[in-house]
Amino acid sequence: MRNPKVWIAIIALLVVGGVIKTWLTFSVDAVRASVAIAPEILFNLAGFDVTPTIITLIIVMIIIILLAVFSTRNLQLVPGGLQNIMETAIEQLINLFEGIAGPKWRDFFTIAASIFILVIVSNFVGLIPGAGSIGIIKLDEKHPTAPEGIFILGDAPAFIHTTSLFHKNQLAQGVPEQELEEEQALVPILRAPTSDINLPLALALVSVIMTQVYGMRAQGLRYWTRFFSFGRIIRFFADAFKGHFKIGEFFFGLIDAFVGAVELVSELGKIIAFTFRLFGNIFAGEVILLIMAFLFFALPIPFYGLEFFVAFIQAFVFAVLTVAFMRLATAEHGGESHEAQHH
């Protein structure tokens, strides 16, 4: 903190914040915070609905691409600056993945590390002050008279009070009471991409599908016997056709098939778990910060720290679980191959 640049940056941030607060707010009290699971639509671009999460995703991508390119632009044997930071991060990831997957970490590294980096940067960008609280009020059929401009979600407890200053303003402007418009929600410009269910779903699908790919690459077609293990039951029917009935074999075959079905369901469950774990944590974090902001002036601060921790932990867990599942899929399941040799 001795670095004067840090102080200059903090002061500049405060000044910019003050300017935004004094000049850009139209009517802070008029809007209620938007808490919507589905991302709000900011505007329509040639038939494509652009959401805050997509805008933030583009920002996140720009940050990551700049980091990726500038950190390795001229690699030195003795690292310094950005290269050092990037190398340290990559080395930590390598150590982590090596601890989980052993020497196979190289196969899984690209996907798991990319997931980690994308998720952690997304989560942190979602925590930038202003993300979720600076936005526009959207016009729609119900609200044709919404004010234009950029708004900050203020300290007015509009979220809790049913009658807001917006109504009072409308009343003061002579709008008859029965024609009062409903409060309008603020659509933030920035919102963490991970709090839009599409990104967690995309990552979960990539993770689970690539797990199957690696499993099949490691074990060939035999990998699928993990889910569709009808070998014993087919053997039972083959034996029955020849005339020996082994009832025990039949029941074991049924159990095998059932275990396979359970594996299949749990594989699908992994997609849901991955998706909702990430989405739920980040979205809940945003909602909690918002609600705390409306309850008491400084209450969000400890939760803000907690959200930083959660942001890191979720990225970490997503990557670690991806590697762990991939390792499980590529490992030979010893029991079956053992049995196959005996028969």
Partner: peptide, 16 residues
């Protein structure tokens, strides 16, 4: 942490 996250996931599902 992995264990905690697996456990916590249940609460998160409830939250969702």
């Amino acid at each position: 942490f992995i264990g905690i996250v697996f456990t916590e996931a249940l609460a998160i599902f409830g939250l969702v």
